[in-house]
Nucleic acid binder design. Structure first.
Lengths: 361, 361
DNA sequence: CTTCATCGGGTAAGCGGTTGCACAACCGGC
DNA sequence: GCCGGTTGTGCAACCGCTTACCCGATGAAG
């Protein structure tokens, strides 16, 4: 029906701006200007050009456009994995905001491997993405800070803005934006929630010294205990990574070593909670009847297991990262170098108040 | 320490191939050839160039490279949403394979809106992605086929290969690849699983006439019933979309209308199963003690709720799509225009054999 | 009826690579 | 000692688009 379907068949070279110009009887410059919109032009010329574009089914070549100096049209996001709900939701936010701003979104995964992270950053550098968003949990050591600083500078030189999402900030002279969320505050709030329900022996699952996310969550946990004058027992902090299977393992090992010496569990995230819950069940312990439990993240598994947890604004994290990075206003830029998003408790049905009798146990 | 950190600081124009050539004392052509690797070169020259590259921290400009005729370096995937586990896993597969082939992956989301799908395809066309992978459930009507045919031809003209992933095929003369998985076979198998356990009244949740995925699943369901000589009761097929909340709604409505007239539930996917399970529980019905249940997809919620389900090779779907599309061999190309991946049952703990007494109910 | 902004549009110089073609240097064989 | 064949580089023409600069036409002002 359209010229395109009939004439522009497969195998044929796609139309260039020259073709459009010829077809419309104007010069390429005119076509370029009319398409980019930012230029006065006679309505007649304009409609001629638009008609030619339609008839030839012309789309601009992004490579050429990018080369010729127009600003890039893409934002990049680098995550550990796309299937992990945490990253997926941040990615969704990035995607959404990018689409809103008319940019497209390129995704790289690292599997947590710094080697691949480096390779991916290089790839993004080649691509001249407008910004590169690095998200997730890391070890905040000197090596990390040095690596990020290098990334930031190299990207800045290529015209891209580095954004650290849920990662610790670097020095003030490093050209990087930071968008974080309040891990410590959330952990504090939900630990207080357990404490108010009368729990005193709260098992923390997923300690991992050196890693920023579990570190700041456990900090909130400890602070809440301290503020409620509950003695801190390091034996209640169990080491493990942020996976479902780890939650299962940690509870299992604990229960095989002896009967539960805790009345509540604070899982480092919802995945751990799901695994822990399964292990508890296999030992005949029900949540919340026998053991109370809370998680962190408020991601899909949480609703399925009726878990009281801390809501993390994952999508907003992604959206904010993009919004900030594309911020053209240099005044605002300087102000918003570092953003901290809030978190809050979502109450479901996984916590029971402890009867005074149990409390003394 | 490195030249880069010291000299190539922020704000400075990134090094071009010309800079490298000058720094190494050779011509740009030589640098280009050495970097692309596909050319003989003297070891001495080679190391000079590599050193210059390192010292200047040079990375090629992808736009320029793309413009100058070198084949594109990216594959594109277009999905409804990144957070839906189904799409996320396919995307993961695409990502993995793309990384393996040294390409990067650009992602677009449509939210299920054909308008945005079109816009996204145009964007990918501009980008000259090597292939564009469209994934997911759709209405297989004339409008759909016509739209896809247009996409396929337009993309082919721009040098991209269209891949339909989990979507129905088009005519044989349309330049599109198809990678599907066996919905009907899986549904047949898992329905048979329920039938073998003695269930006769199996509620199907998530019928949605016209949509390819639920359609082919319900086809397998019906076929299994027929083969087992179980009368088909259309009243057992409940309309609904593929979301968790819908599963909840469907069961809830059913149970509010009267006591259960079924002994098992076949949820159109795992999300529906999760929602349905919750609704059952709220009505005092336990899975599998009171009601047996199976799902489809074998995605995260399934393990959490111990769901017997059909495993869909999501990641492999994505990997295969990329592998096929990048297949350079035209002989194989022709052969593999249409691929069907197998599915199989994963048995967990959500089905109980029906006692003969109940069977007659 | 000039004069001069103003507006709309054309010309052409890049952007940073790739690659066909030409060519110098060096090899062994006659 | 001359010749044909490698090998390794350089030269320069694009790829498709943007944009600085320039110029012809048009209408208002003097």
């Amino acid at each position: 029906m359209s010229q395109r379907a009939a004439g522009g068949g497969e195998g044929r070279r796609p139309a260039t701006i020259r073709d459009v110009a010829a077809h419309a009887g104007v010069s390429v410059a005119t076509v370029s200007r009319i398409l980019s919109g930012t230029y006065p032009s006679a309505p007649a010329t304009r409609s001629k050009v638009m008609r030619a574009v339609r008839e030839l089914d012309y789309v601009a070549n992004a490579n050429a456009r990018g080369l010729a100096g127009a600003s890039s049209r893409s934002v990049a996001i680098i995550v550990n994995s796309v299937v992990s709900p945490h990253y997926a939701h941040v990615a969704q936010g990035v995607q959404t905001q990018a689409a809103l701003e008319g940019k497209l979104c390129i995704v790289g995964t690292t599997g947590g491997d710094p080697e691949r992270e480096l390779a991916t950053v290089q790839l993004m550098r080649q691509e001249h993405a407008e910004c590169v968003i690095l998200v997730g949990n890391v070890v905040n050591d000197e090596a990390y800070r040095q690596r990020m600083t290098e990334y930031a500078r190299a990207l800045a030189a290529a015209g891209s803005q580095l954004v650290l999402c849920g990662r610790p900030a670097l020095g003030p002279d490093v050209p990087a934006l930071v968008v974080e969320y309040d891990n410590t505050g959330g952990a504090y709030a939900i630990t207080s929630h357990l404490l108010s329900a009368g729990h005193r022996r709260i098992l923390f699952l997923g300690r991992r010294d050196g890693y920023t996310t579990p570190d700041s969550r456990i900090t909130g946990y400890r602070r809440a205990l301290a503020d409620h004058r509950v003695p801190h027992d390091p034996g209640l902090e169990i080491d493990g990574t942020m996976e479902r299977s780890e939650g299962y393992r940690m509870i299992r090992q604990r229960l095989e070593a002896g009967p539960p010496d805790f009345t509540a569990v604070f899982a480092g995230n919802d995945l751990i909670a799901a695994g822990a819950r399964q292990a508890l069940r296999e030992h005949g312990l029900r949540v919340p009847d026998d053991i109370s439990m809370v998680g962190f993240d408020d991601l899909p598994p949480a609703a399925d297991i009726d878990l009281t947890t801390v809501h993390v604004p994952h999508e907003e994290l992604g959206r904010t990262a993009v919004r900030l990075a594309l911020q053209r206003d240099p005044g605002k830029m300087a102000m918003a170098q570092h953003v901290l998003l809030g978190t809050h408790i979502i109450v479901r049905d996984s916590v029971r108040p402890l009867r005074p009798a149990d409390a003394t146990t």
